[in-house]
Simulated scan of single mutants.
Amino acid sequence: MIMPPSSSKLFASLQYLLPQHGLSRLMHRVVRIRRPWFKNAMIRTFCKLYRVDLTESICTSPDSFECFNSFFTRALKPGVRPICSEPDGIACPADGVISQIGAIEGRRLFQAKGHCFELAELLGGDDCRTAKFENGSFATVYLSPRDYHRVHLPVAGTLAAMVHVPGALFSVNVATTENIPNLFARNERVICYFDTVAGPMAVILVGAIFVSSIETVWYGEVTPPRSKTIRRWDYSGQGLSFERGAEIGRFNMGSTVIVLFGAGHACWRPEIEAGLSVKMGMSLGSYR
């Protein structure tokens, strides 16, 4: 449902007043409750409210999940998300909706009408990394509550580094992206850097309100615990390589993924535009 402008602004403004991290910590506990009567009722209510399709899931019965978080991060049946077949294709990292896609204008990215944000701020103030993506390309995918919430690699690559940038936990839906400046550079995020045949690539998992944790397959839960300072991990030389389409992380409750490429390396398909529903694995474009 699309909110009228006045309601959208009110919804965004109220989020400044909420105890965002406290609500996230509470959600982290609630979604891991294993009492059958509680988790089954929660899962069934959620499925009805958001019209979740469990036919694609390995577990097709709401009662078969050990807790709500297991349901929310559910694995899919093999083959239901085929990876694009083009040798130079850039695979969509997640199910969701394209929030924005296009070129990085110097060191600025487009967020929504009337709002841009700085690449350096998004990357936690790392000037060296920022320079690698200057005048490059980006794609932002919003994951709604009903979506599959695992994140996959758009292009085969080797993990170079990971950075956790603490921050706020505003919602990342349309109403908020249109009304809160610098949203993605303000929210908590986990930045994963890869070396690929398409040059440097970053896959950024952006937190949001009620996102109780973000995890990666090589580290586990990056958050919580929360941190007030930027944390960095160097994986260069460890040979952690992943094929295109490989799972690299997940949101334990919903959010947004941003993919970055360096200048001249990504060419987006013209029909892929803001507002388009996408599935993990489909082609967003090609690399050069």
Results as ranks from 00 to 15, higher is better:
Ser171Gly: 12
Ser171Arg: 09
Ser171Phe: 12
Val172Ala: 02
Val172Tyr: 02
Asn173Glu: 08
Asn173Gln: 09
Asn173Asp: 13
Val174Cys: 14
Ala175Gln: 05
Ala175Arg: 01
Ala175Cys: 08
Ala175Phe: 06
Thr176Trp: 11
Thr177Asn: 11
Glu178Pro: 11
Glu178Thr: 14
Glu178Cys: 15
Asn179Leu: 08
Asn179Lys: 05
Asn179Glu: 08
Ile180Ser: 09
Ile180Asp: 07
Ile180Tyr: 07
Ile180Lys: 08
Ile180Thr: 12
Asn182Thr: 13
Asn182Pro: 08
Asn182Gly: 13
Asn182His: 14
Asn182Val: 07
Asn182Phe: 12
Leu183Tyr: 03
Phe184Cys: 03
Ala185Lys: 00
Ala185Asn: 04
Arg186Phe: 12
Arg186Met: 13
Arg186Ala: 13
Arg186Thr: 13
Asn187Tyr: 11
Asn187Cys: 10
Glu188Lys: 06
Glu188Met: 09
Glu188Ile: 10
Glu188Cys: 08
Glu188Phe: 08
Glu188Gln: 10
Arg189Gln: 05
Arg189Glu: 04
Arg189Thr: 07
Arg189Trp: 08
Arg189Phe: 08
Arg189Pro: 02
Val190Ala: 02
Ile191His: 00
Cys192Val: 15
Cys192Leu: 15
Cys192Trp: 06
Phe194Arg: 04
Phe194Thr: 11
Phe194Gly: 07
Asp195Thr: 14
Asp195Cys: 12
Thr196Tyr: 01
Thr196Leu: 01
Val197Arg: 12
Ala198Asn: 05
Ala198Tyr: 01
Ala198Asp: 04
Ala198Pro: 06
Ala198Met: 02
Gly199Val: 03
Pro200His: 06
Pro200Ile: 06
Met201Tyr: 02
Met201Leu: 14
Met201Glu: 08
Ala202Lys: 05
Val203Cys: 09
Ile204Leu: 05
Leu205Lys: 06
Leu205Val: 10
Leu205Ile: 11
Val206Glu: 02
Val206Trp: 04
Val206Gln: 02
Val206Ser: 01
Gly207Lys: 05
Gly207Pro: 05
Gly207Leu: 09
Gly207Trp: 05
Ala208Gly: 04
Ala208His: 03
Ile209Asp: 05
Ile209Thr: 11
Phe210Val: 14
Phe210Lys: 14
Val211Arg: 08
Val211Asn: 14
Val211Trp: 11
Ser212Val: 09
Ser213Gly: 09
Ser213Val: 05
Ile214Gln: 00
Ile214Asn: 00
Ile214Lys: 00
Ile214Met: 02
Glu215Ser: 15
Glu215Met: 13
Glu215Lys: 13
Glu215Tyr: 15
Thr216Glu: 01
Thr216Met: 03
Thr216Trp: 10
Thr216Tyr: 09
Val217Asn: 02
Val217Lys: 03
Val217His: 03
